[in-house]
Amino acid sequence: MEKNTISEQQAVSMTDELQLLMENNIALTNAMQVIGGKWKLLLLNSIRLDCPARFGELRKKMQDITHATLTAQLRELEQDGIIERKVYAEVPPRVEYKLTPLGITLVPIITSLCDWGEAYKNRMV
């Protein structure tokens, strides 16, 4: 009866592949922690298209988002260095959001996702 074993070389190769897969997943996980979720990419796209964007404008564009969720998502994007927030000393208060230099690096990615989504929609019609 023959044993079903793998050679030491095969085991090393599998370990290298697993390590590479884990490294790729870590990078993707890092990206998803910053831009993942239901609203963040939509917010970034809105800010990209109407820069600077005011809080009220963002709220109108995303009617299903709650005030608290919008505030939380914007704060997270600000903490991650993707957007910056500017508060004007006016009554009523005016707050504007724009992409930071780091956030601007996401523009080609967001554009590609929009293009892919349009192509996918057209494929389905």
Rank of each mutant, 00 (worst) to 15 (best):
T5D: 10
I6V: 14
S7E: 09
E8V: 13
E8R: 10
Q10D: 14
A11E: 08
V12N: 02
M14T: 03
M14L: 15
L18C: 07
L21S: 12
M22S: 07
N24P: 01
N24D: 14
N25T: 15
I26K: 10
N30M: 09
M32S: 14
V34R: 02
G36H: 02
G36I: 02
W39S: 00
K40T: 01
L41Y: 00
L42A: 12
L43D: 00
N45P: 00
F55T: 14
Q63V: 07
I65G: 02
I65K: 00
T66G: 05
H67G: 01
H67N: 15
T71E: 10
L77K: 04
E78D: 05
Q79F: 12
D80M: 14
D80L: 05
D80H: 12
D80S: 08
G81D: 08
R85K: 15
R85T: 14
R85N: 09
K86Q: 13
Y88A: 14
A89C: 10
E90N: 05
E90Q: 09
V91W: 06
P92R: 07
R94K: 13
V95G: 00
K98N: 04
T100W: 08
T100I: 06
L102C: 05
G103S: 08
I104N: 07
T105V: 03
V107I: 14
P108Y: 11
I110A: 01
S112H: 07
L113C: 09
C114F: 03
G117K: 02
A119K: 13
K121L: 05
K121P: 00
K121W: 09
N122M: 08
R123C: 03
R123Y: 06
M124L: 10
